[in-house]
């Protein structure tokens, strides 16, 4: 067991999979010689060489097209899209090509590939380098969508994503790269499609994703001191979605709060709210409450960005008001 940062976990996960399987290759902008702009991939070029760890031009379509073509012909590529906002530049390759080609060809081709990307806000980068775009991905049939909240999950879920036979969008959170966590020694492989219950409490369920998970946990701690006991679920995997775990906790607590960094409309919590209201309506003691970023682009100024993103205080206040 060792303390590891979230960014170091990324490199460890990629190295773990590249050592195990020669068909795993890695490409992206500044990922090899420079070790990544977030310093999440240093050392990989040295260990695995320039044939497997490749720097690319600033060409997001070419990067993702190369990953797709390589995946359909026997490799297991990991591609990096530096900032998740840049998915918009290459969304055609993701949505029209990677996500649909297995279906359109009646199962003739497989796409065992992972696209890692720095997602989310909190670093004062402004509207084009801060978005949480996991809900874009969730809306497209054919993509698996993962967002880890801690270093151990980065390793286990990234390893599972690499080994998965389907395309996985892997949303790392930029604001978490420096976060530390306990990570066991040796190989770690987790399971896609599984949420994790981080804390059990009788009064409500708080479901959160990515950087909202530590905030939900902090909020649960404060609520506990005020006499409200929250269950906290780290959703981890939007597709496949572990509805069983979420429904089970909501049935036990009778309340659901979602903490979402994505802008309000069509966020992942809206889908969760729909499922819960359809399938365990009679277990609910009150309305489902979504705590989200408002439906605006993210501002750069720290004061404004802090108001925009769901904060610990906002979670505490929302839960207290509703559950009181």
């Amino acid at each position: 067991m060792a303390q590891l940062t979230y960014r170091a976990a990324v490199a460890r996960a990629i190295a773990q999979e590249m050592r195990r399987d020669d068909s795993v290759v890695f490409l992206g902008e500044d990922v090899a010689a420079a070790g990544g702009v977030f310093k999440a991939t240093p050392g990989l070029l040295d260990e695995f060489g320039a044939e497997r760890v490749r720097d690319t031009p600033i060409s997001e379509q070419a990067i993702l097209g190369a990953a797709m073509g390589a995946a359909m012909t026997g490799l297991r590529p990991i591609a990096e899209i530096m900032f998740a906002d840049f998915f918009a530049v290459a969304w055609d390759i993701v949505v029209n090509e990677i996500a649909k080609s297995r279906y359109m060809t009646n199962g003739q081709v497989s796409f065992p590939l992972v696209i890692r990307s720095g997602n989310g806000g909190g670093l004062r980068f402004g509207a084009q380098h801060s978005q949480s775009v996991e809900n874009w991905a969730m809306a497209v049939p054919g993509l698996k969508v993962i967002a880890p909240s801690n270093p151990r999950d980065v390793i286990g879920l990234l390893a599972a994503a690499v080994r998965d036979p389907d395309p996985v969008l892997f949303f790392e959170h930029k604001a978490l790269y420096a976060a530390k966590g306990e990570v066991p020694d040796g190989e770690i492989v987790d399971e896609l499609g599984t949420a994790r219950v981080l804390r059990r409490g009788r009064d409500c369920t708080i479901a959160a994703l990515g950087a909202m998970v530590p905030r939900a946990l902090a909020a649960a701690g404060q609520l506990s001191s005020q006499g409200i006991e929250a269950t906290v679920v780290d959703v981890r995997s939007l597709v496949p979605l572990d509805t069983a775990t979420i429904l089970e906790t909501v049935a036990a607590t009778g309340r659901l709060f979602t903490v979402e960094e994505n802008p309000r409309l069509c966020g992942w919590g809206a889908e969760l709210a729909s499922i819960v209201s359809e399938e365990c309506f009679h277990d609910l003691d009150g309305p489902i409450v979504r705590i989200t970023t408002p439906h605006v682009p993210l501002p750069a100024a720290d004061v404004l960005e802090d108001i925009a993103l769901p904060s610990v205080a906002r979670v505490v206040e929302s839960v207290r008001t509703a559950v009181g």
Binding site: Q61, G65, T73
Partner: peptide, 12 residues
Amino acid sequence: AHLTIANGAAWS
């Protein structure tokens, strides 16, 4: 799009 995908096969 498929020019980029052909590259991937060629890379493989």
